[in-house]
Design a protein around this nucleic acid. Structure first.
Length: 453
DNA sequence: ATCGGCTCGCGCAA
DNA sequence: TGCGCGAAGCCGAT
C-alpha cells in the first residue's frame, strides 16, 4: 500500500540536520488539504509507525496572518473549520497557527527526540523566514516536505531557471515518477486523541481588512466544495484550448483559490485531469499550466530573493527600463486611482472592478492590467509595488508565487524575451486594448463586469 | 487572414 | 561557435 519509500524520502529534506531521534514524530502540517491527500502526513505516519510511536502534534501553518480582506478570511476559515474535523480523525493533538509565538508549542514537543515535520514547502520569503526561525528556536529536528508542488522544487532544479523551455524537460523527466495517485492513510495503531485546542476565529478574522463582501457565486470555500468543483471542472474543460484566453468564455478552471489556500492538492487535480476523458491536447495544455507554469513560478521565487523587487527582474529588462526612466508618462496615477478604478481607460477600470468584485481576474487580462500600471506610473518600482499590492489585496489567490511571477513577467520581463523598444516600456513586451479587441469581445466583457460577482 | 520584423540569451549541436 | 526558439506582444504590409 505504501510503496513510495524512495519518493517519500526524496520528497523530504532536513531543514536543520539533527540526529534521527527516538521520540515521537512531531508533525507540522501547513495550510493543507485532506490529510489523505497529503504526502507529508503519509511521511510522518510512516516515520511514526516504523518506530511504533504516535503522531504527537500538528502544527498548522495556515495563511491566516496575511489575510488582506474579510473575503480572504472567510475563505480560509471555512477551509480551516473542515480541516479541524480531519485533524481529529487523524489523531492530531495540537495546532499552532501562523503568527503564534513559538513558545505556544508545548516544551515536550519542541524539545523531544522526534521529528518535526514541516510540510507545504513555500518559496516565499516570509514563510522561509518563519521556518528558519522555528528551526533555531526548538531542538526537535525539522523535515520539510514539498507537497505544494508535484515534484519538489529543489529536485527539479538547483538554480533559477531562465524560462519555461529550460525547466520543462527537467519536469518531464521526473513527472512519471511523481505524478501518481495517493496511497491511503492507515489508521495509526498507537495514535492518541487529545485534541483540545480551539481556534479563535474572531481574532483571526479581526486581522483582515474590513471590506464589504458580497457572496461569490462562482466559488464556494472549503475542501468539500473544492472536491466538487474539481470534478465539475474536469468535465467541463473541453474547450479549454480554444477559449482559455477569452475572458468572456469562462473556460478557465477557477481552481487557483483552492490551490492557494490548500483546500485542494495540485497533485490530486493533476492526477484527475491526467486520467480524465479529456482529449490529449486539452490535458497537455492544462497540465502545462498547472504543473510547468506553477513550478516555474515557485522556482523563480525560491531562487530569486528579490522576486517582488526591481532587482529580481531579468538583466536585459532592468537595463532597458533604466534607460527609459525619464520618458514622459502620458498618464500618471496614484495607488488610489488604480484601486478605485479611476483611470481614463474603461477596459482597465473594468478589469479593476472585476478583480475587486469577484476576487479574481482572467489570466489574459492580468497581463494587460499589470502592463498598464507600468505605463501609467512614475517608475517600474512604483508600478511593481502597486501591482503587487492590488493583486495581493483583492485577488483570492494573491500572495502566491504565481502572482509575483506574473507581475514580474508583465513588468520585468521575467521568463520573457525582449521586444521592440518603445517609450516607458523599453524592450518589455507591450500590450494594449487594441490587442484585447483583436482577441475577444471587449464590450461584451465590460457589460458583464460586476454583474456576476 | 497571415506574415515578417522587432530583440535577447540559454541550451544544445557541432 | 552558431543556431533555434521562446507564455500570451504590436504593427504595418500583403
Amino acid at each position: 500500500m505504501l510503496k513510495r519509500d524512495n519518493n517519500r524520502d526524496r520528497r523530504s529534506r532536513s531543514v536543520h540536520p539533527g540526529k534521527r531521534g527516538n521520540g515521537p514524530v512531531v508533525y507540522w502540517m501547513s495550510r493543507d488539504q485532506r490529510a489523505a491527500d497529503n504526502w507529508a502526513l503519509l511521511w510522518a505516519q510512516q516515520e511514526a509507525m516504523s518506530r511504533n510511536k504516535g503522531l504527537q502534534v500538528l502544527y498548522c501553518y495556515n495563511p491566516l496572518d496575511c489575510l488582506p480582506t474579510l473575503r480572504h478570511a472567510l475563505f480560509a476559515l471555512t477551509g480551516l473549520a473542515e480541516l479541524q474535523q480531519t485533524f481529529i480523525s487523524y489523531n492530531i493533538d495540537f495546532i499552532l497557527l501562523e503568527g503564534d509565538p513559538v513558545e505556544t508549542i508545548p516544551s515536550h514537543l519542541a524539545d523531544c527526540g522526534g521529528h518535526l515535520l514541516a510540510t507545504d514547502f513555500s518559496p516565499l520569503r516570509t514563510k522561509r523566514h518563519q521556518l528558519e526561525q522555528l528551526s533555531e528556536q526548538i531542538s526537535t529536528p525539522i523535515y520539510e516536505i514539498d507537497s505544494h508542488n508535484i515534484i519538489p522544487a529543489w529536485l527539479i532544479s538547483d538554480k533559477k531557471e531562465y524560462g519555461a523551455y529550460t525547466i520543462r524537460p527537467k519536469i518531464n523527466r521526473l513527472l512519471p515518477e511523481y505524478l501518481t495517485d495517493f496511497p491511503e492513510l492507515q489508521p495509526h495503531p498507537t495514535g492518541k486523541i487529545t485534541f483540545d485546542r480551539s481556534i479563535d476565529v474572531s481574532r483571526l478574522a479581526g486581522r483582515a481588512r474590513n471590506q464589504e463582501v458580497t457572496e461569490l457565486s462562482w466559488l464556494r470555500p472549503g475542501e468539500t466544495a473544492a472536491q466538487a468543483a474539481m470534478l465539475h471542472t474536469v468535465k467541463s474543460l473541453g474547450d479549454y484550448v480554444i477559449n482559455r484566453n477569452d475572458p468572456t468564455k469562462n473556460a478557465q478552471s477557477n481552481m487557483s483559490p483552492y490551490l492557494h489556500f490548500g483546500q485542494l492538492s495540485p497533485q490530486r487535480l493533476a492526477w484527475e485531469v491526467y486520467n480524465s476523458e479529456l482529449s490529449l491536447e486539452v490535458r497537455e495544455s492544462y497540465l502545462e499550466e498547472l504543473i510547468v507554469r506553477r513550478e516555474l513560478a515557485d522556482n523563480f521565487c525560491y531562487y530569486e530573493a528579490s522576486y517582488d523587487r526591481f532587482e529580481g527582474f531579468t538583466d536585459w529588462a532592468k537595463k532597458s527600463l533604466d534607460q527609459h526612466r525619464c520618458d514622459k508618462r502620458e498618464y500618471r496615477y496614484a495607488l488610489e486611482h488604480f484601486e478605485q478604478a479611476k483611470t481614463h481607460e474603461p477596459l482597465w477600470n473594468g478589469c479593476q472592478i472585476d478583480l475587486v468584485s469577484r476576487g479574481k481576474l482572467h489570466g489574459y487580462l492580468r497581463m494587460y492590467w499589470a502592463k498598464k500600471i507600468l505605463e501609467w506610473t512614475g517608475s517600474p518600482e512604483e508600478a511593481l509595488e502597486y501591482a503587487i499590492t492590488l493583486n495581493d489585496t483583492y485577488s483570492l489567490d494573491g500572495s502566491d508565487p504565481n502572482g509575483y511571477n506574473g507581475v514580474a513577467w508583465a513588468i520585468g520581463g521575467v521568463h520573457d524575451r525582449a521586444w521592440k523598444e518603445r517609450p516607458v516600456f523599453g524592450k518589455i513586451r507591450y500590450m494594449n486594448e487594441a490587442g484585447c479587441r483583436r482577441k475577444f469581445n471587449v464590450d461584451y466583457y465590460l457589460e458583464n463586469v460586476s454583474k456576476s460577482s
